[in-house]
Amino acid sequence: MSIDIRKIVVQVDETRQEQGQRIEPPTRRAVAMAVIANPYAGRFSENLDELVAAGEELGGLLGDKCVKALGIAPGEAESYGKAAIVGEGGELEHAAAVLHPKLGAPLRQAVEKGAALVPSAKKRGTLGTAIDVPLGHKDAAYVRSHFDAVEARVSDAPRAGEIVVCVAVTDSGRPLPRIGGLTTAEIKGEDGLR
């Protein structure tokens, strides 16, 4: 069964200047959000396979949307993250079913490689609830310049029987990183950490 997507929202946030300093090239963060029907809303179901399958479909769809919105080649993506907001009729485990078992592999395909864990957040919420999608470097989680988060929100979702599923992809780190730590130049990219 294919998932029932009510709407998709894609946003791009481009920072050209911060604290009077010009950012050249600008840092850019894309977020793609899908509002889907929650097939398990309003009841307890031991099995959550439909949402696991939805996650697999959405990892590729939303990852591709982000890469396209940034206008980059997949390999130029630098950091990523994922999140879900479950409407009132659902439970936190529904978000987990979408996000954790199968969303990652097609997302990694959309951004080419992706050795690192995809950082995530989840919550229950209502229409217009905002969630901060954590961001980490896609090949090395300890790259300090790329620790970040981007806010995602759909004004008319999630309704009680819906889930907002969010994928974020960037082509850059924070605008003015200067607190040291592992840099992109030092990435080995083998263990997903450094």
Partner: peptide, 15 residues
């Protein structure tokens, strides 16, 4: 003096 550019596109399939 532009600091930031923010775009959003919604694709509404049904309500």
């Amino acid at each position: 003096d532009i600091r930031r550019v923010f775009t959003q596109v919604e694709e509404i399939r049904h309500e």
